[in-house]
């Protein structure tokens, strides 16, 4: 349903991404991972049309560059890292904005479907009890869930997440990833997410795109892409043994 062909991003003579390709089918969860500066976020910025790029992103055969903003939002939803709140909006107000792309004229009220999508988004993210609370008073995890609820209300086909849990503790990380996993079970959905944590990439991703210095090191089913050799190429250390060692320390603690 989504296809990236030969994507390159160049900023001031520096290639941030070079000829990256990938494909996305219904039910796929593509993990983009690699070291700092590998070009992971740049790739996300290219999809969301924030930076200029060469190559082509296609959604169901159509170049997404020419989508109108509201049609874009109905198909592709992006959750960025490091969201902050400066003004006192309520959780409900933020989630409601997710239906913007579906609103008609200025005076049109929310439709039945809008209401239902908002309710549903609040329910699955467990935000119903704090719907009228100001976002200034939320914890990091609650704020992230609020924006996730907005995305669910927006109901795109493809969810793109740029390190959605990088500053959250392990409980919230699991919570967010499980929510997304549930969302993905619906019909005709796919997820792309940038993650640092290789454990998360392995546990949740169906496919992985491993980047290093803007180039593809490996791409394919997560199990194959995250092989010992590929990881060593991307991270220039023996990641596989490191992970095994870390796991071992837990096993040792058990006994």
């Amino acid at each position: 349903m989504f296809c990236a062909t030969d994507i390159s991003v160049k900023v001031q003579d520096k290639m941030l991404i070079e000829s990256v390709c990938f494909e996305l089918h219904e039910g796929d969860w593509l993990m983009i991972t690699g070291r700092n500066g590998a070009g992971k976020s740049t790739l996300i910025n290219a999809i969301s049309q924030k930076v200029n790029y060469s190559g082509k992103f296609e959604y169901e055969g159509q170049d997404i560059k020419y989508f109108k903003p509201n049609n874009f939002a109905k198909r592709i939803g992006v959750l960025k890292q490091g969201l902050s709140a400066d003004y006192s909006f309520t959780v409900g107000e933020v989630v409601k904005l997710g239906r913007y792309a579906y609103s008609g004229g200025i005076f049109s009220a929310l439709s039945e479907l809008d209401e239902q999508m908002i309710e549903n988004a609040l329910e699955v993210t467990g935000l119903q009890s704090i719907v009228n609370q100001s976002i200034l008073t939320l914890s990091g995890g609650e704020l992230q869930r609020t924006f996730l609820a907005q995305l669910f209300a927006q109901d795109p086909k493809i969810l793109i997440l740029d390190e959605p849990t990088s500053h959250l503790d392990i409980t919230f990380q699991k919570q967010i990833f499980d929510l997304i996993g549930e969302w993905l079970k619906q019909e005709n959905k796919a997820v792309i997410s940038v993650v640092h944590d290789l454990n998360l990439a392995k546990a949740y991703g169906t496919h992985t795109l491993l980047l290093n210095k803007g180039k593809t090191v490996a791409y394919g089913k997560s199990n194959e892409a995250l092989s010992k050799e590929n990881l060593e190429k991307a991270y220039s250390i023996d990641v596989y043994s490191l992970m095994q060692g870390l796991l071992g320390s837990w096993n040792g603690a058990k006994t």
Binding site: S48, Q49, K50, P69, N70, N71, F72, A73, K74, G77, V78, L79, K80, L83, S84, A85, D86, Y87, F89, E93, V94, L97, G98, Y100, A101, S103, F147, Q150, L151, Q154
Partner: peptide, 18 residues
């Protein structure tokens, strides 16, 4: 409505389709 989205963040405004 659009200003609400901008006040939450320009990225957010772009994302919801403004």
């Amino acid at each position: 409505t659009e200003l609400n989205a901008f006040a939450i963040g320009e990225d957010n405004a772009r994302n919801i389709g403004v």
